[in-house]
């Protein structure tokens, strides 16, 4: 077990390291402008007094590294800073929206993951049949479409023409779970479609890859039944790549959710971040960016950890 523990420790340390590096990068991302940030935020028409005020708020008179450590120190203590646009603490602005975003992402994932794995298994099992080919063309098309196209098509069909679901996904605290689920039906469907397409294609590839291993041929030559080959010989080895595919594709949710929230005017983090970019509210953008990036890194780390744990060569080391 030592080898596994060591690998896990390494992977977690790497995750923490990436998180730190990413925080630097996000901070630097807003520093790459050659000129004055305050001027850029306010535009050319700004008065010198306004520029000076912004410089004061952002502490621009301090060197960059000091501001970075102040920012990072604040975050570690749970203080995400203050918005430029409305002077409110960012933590307060994000709190509820983060919950909404997580709710949308979680519901989508709960539908998408089983669906994608099931479709991937079917496509791999009936490889090269008409069923496989039609699933393949359908998912390829879905991957190729921008999220907002899928979103508006769904709105047009289900909200405007059929009137089955609301086109704007507004949720409030006072709503019951059922009402909330009804409200997010369309954004959730949009996200699910996009994620399923990616996930299903890679699941299919992972299973086909395992099925072409020599030990599968060996099992066939031992007269093992097809179902036993699938369950006993292929599945334990396909598990690790499938877990990897599933978790990595959940990362599409991180990006997809931003666009879908804008399409459906959903009160989540994505919407908040896009608005903040338009208003050049840099502290809010940084905070949102860091949270999205952290979610993404966490998912990647989970994928690697699960795949380490499901590797038989690591679980049973050479004595």
């Amino acid at each position: 077990m030592n080898a596994v523990l060591r690998l896990l420790a390494q992977r977690i340390a790497l995750g923490a390291g990436s998180l730190l590096a990413v925080s630097v990068l996000i901070f630097l991302g807003t520093e790459i402008l050659p000129g004055d940030v305050a001027q850029a935020i306010l535009g050319q028409a700004a008065t010198p007094e306004a520029v000076a005020a912004i410089r004061e708020t952002l502490d621009l008179n301090q060197p960059a590294y000091i501001r970075y450590f102040d920012w990072l120190g604040g975050i570690l203590q749970g203080d995400l800073g203050t918005s430029l646009a409305n002077r409110r603490p960012i933590g307060e602005m994000i709190g509820e929206r983060l919950q909404n975003t997580l709710f949308l992402a979680a519901v989508s994932a709960a539908i998408a993951v089983p669906l994608a794995v099931f479709l991937g298994l079917i496509a791999a099992r009936f490889r090269n049949s008409w069923l496989d080919k039609s699933i393949s063309i359908a998912t390829l098309s879905t991957i190729s479409m921008p999220e907002f196209f899928v979103g508006y098509v769904l709105i047009f069909i289900f909200a405007v023409t059929l009137r089955w679901a609301p086109s704007l996904a507004s949720v409030y605290d006072s709503m019951s779970l059922g009402e909330k689920l009804y409200a997010i039906a369309l954004p959730c469907a949009t996200l699910t479609l996009v994620v399923v397409a990616h996930m299903m294609r890679l699941t299919r590839a992972a299973i086909i890859n395992v099925m072409s291993s020599p030990y599968i041929e060996m099992a066939e030559l031992k007269g093992v039944t097809r179902s036993r080959i699938t369950l006993y010989h292929a599945f334990p080895n396909a598990l690790s790549p499938i877990i990897n595919v599933v978790v990595l594709n959940l990362a599409y949710l991180v990006v997809g959710v931003v666009l879908v929230e804008v399409v459906f005017v959903y009160p989540g983090m994505g919407q908040l971040m896009v608005d903040a970019v338009a208003k050049r509210d840099v502290p809010v953008v940084q905070a949102c960016g860091l949270i999205f990036a952290a979610a993404y890194i966490l998912l990647n780390m989970t994928a690697d950890i699960l795949s380490i744990l499901s590797n038989p060569k690591l679980r049973h080391p050479r004595s």
Partner: peptide, 11 residues
Amino acid sequence: AQSAAAAFNPA
């Protein structure tokens, strides 16, 4: 088979 390492299921 020729390659036993590949013909045995690692799991």
